[in-house]
Write a protein that binds this DNA or RNA. Sequence first.
DNA 1: ACCTGAACACCGTTCAAGT
DNA 2: ACCTGAACACCGTTCAAGT
Lengths: 213, 213
Amino acid sequence: MGRPAKFSREQLQAAALALVDEHGLAGLSMRALANALGTGAMTLYNYVTEREDLDILVVEAVIAEARWSPGRNRDWREDVRLISTALWKAVRAHPHAIPLILTRRSRSPAVFGVSEALLDALSRGGKSGQELLVAFRSVSALVMGFAQAELAGPLAVKAGETANATIARFRALPAERYRCLIEIATAAESSAPEAEFRAALDLLLKGMSAGGD
Amino acid sequence: MGRPAKFSREQLQAAALALVDEHGLAGLSMRALANALGTGAMTLYNYVTEREDLDILVVEAVIAEARWSPGRNRDWREDVRLISTALWKAVRAHPHAIPLILTRRSRSPAVFGVSEALLDALSRGGKSGQELLVAFRSVSALVMGFAQAELAGPLAVKAGETANATIARFRALPAERYRCLIEIATAAESSAPEAEFRAALDLLLKGMSAGGD
DNA sequence: ACCTGAACACCGTTCAAGT
DNA sequence: ACCTGAACACCGTTCAAGT
């Protein structure tokens, strides 16, 4: 790949993310990104090896936006909350990019950095080895799983659908067969994503605190 | 759309899933699916309205494979484990389809059915309303988040990489900066996904049992 | 009512050629 | 060493026409 000069990786990341934010996933193509950068499509091959690398540029740009005030003096649970929420918010800030974040691997310092910060907080909660691994996987899964559910879960709001329309859609289901589903669709109406995320995280933190600490 | 006759929805689902299982996501196209069914591409537009519907066919085919022995007499926690694990295993059984399952919405009876079953178990744990909603979102997020992490998380194994190569890759990172990450990469080596999933689920169940029940 | 081939506007990427 | 246009083999979808 040599030492390309015309564009920096940050430029590529910013331009790729801007395309996705503005025009959706379909707006990101070799030709479109090249055009946004004022060059020809083939020039991009001096910076990436294949199309999928463009997706990874977007993922890294989004994760790099996760920010939390670092501090190893607080209660470890509060740090887990701060870091998890920062990651979750960065992801939710770019709804069009979420499919890429869920499916593309990145080994950038941004991705490894947030993982290490989360692990550090959990380790201060007294976890190590296998127990630390499970705690990390649990919290990470909760963050990504919440983002996933909002995008594609059974309660996900359809594009351009009002809250009333969503609940009406569930009320139209067979009441007997989907009793609970209809109940939580109603509950979701008077609920904020932030509160649900916080409550879910606290369930997990309670489960992690019960044994040790 | 009228009343198409030449193919059933089940036929389309099975053929689409077979294409993805065998040839990966890139193997699923209007032309390829039509060819697999022995017809022309345009014929498919009598059954779906756009390309993305093919992805949804795949999602429904995978979720419909989730099977658990129904029973409302066991401890509710055991039912949560059985249903969650059945869903997680169905997803993991089709690794190529996972990106679609994470990102495509389906409102098929199969998807709503597993949600209602999970909700029913949680409601037998004494949850209702907002509390039931949070419990459901937590368990669902854990299932999808675990599938997501195996596909694209920081510890995900690269295609065709041995366990030893994975751990060597982490050992090559700056030891100071990524102390915990290297520790859990080592722990992950002598760990089974099934055990991790079970342990994570039990953390959450413990957190959910502490207050009520 | 359902089916289908030709054609159009895209796409990623190979190749060959420029500086 | 980096850059780039033309060309190729795809793709989803519109259109018009068949039965």
